[in-house]
């Protein structure tokens, strides 16, 4: 972490932080909309609290899994591109 943070320029760090904040806002909105339906009480009920925390954790796991699959697909696409380039590069 420290090494990558050092290698990143200040502009990149700000961009990453901004992306994090945007994600944070999206996550709040999503879990609020999915978990909070009752406004007869000012306080968060324990079921609502549990739902929001579960919602957040599940979302993060979802993101993690999608990211894994996404990178797998990208790697395959890259390999295909390289193979195609080599094929057309030296027609033997």
């Amino acid at each position: 972490m420290a090494a990558s943070a050092q290698m990143m320029s200040e502009a990149d760090q700000i961009k990453t932080f901004k992306e994090f904040l945007v994600q944070y806002n999206k996550l709040s909105e999503l879990c609020f909309n999915d978990c909070i339906h009752d406004f007869t009480s000012r306080n968060l009920r324990s079921t609502e609290d549990k739902c929001t925390i579960n919602c957040m954790e599940k979302y993060l796991r979802t993101n993690q899994r999608v990211s894994q699959r996404f990178h797998e697909f990208q790697m395959i696409a890259n390999e295909n591109m390289i193979a195609l380039a080599q094929k057309s590069g030296n027609p033997s």
Binding site: C35, T52, N54, R61, T62
Partner: peptide, 20 residues
């Protein structure tokens, strides 16, 4: 957009547990 779409389509809004 991919994460948003797949979350919307695959994850039911009942959050009984944090695991997938």
């Amino acid at each position: 957009r991919l994460v948003g779409a797949c979350h919307r389509k695959c994850i039911p809004v009942k959050y009984h547990e944090p695991e997938l």
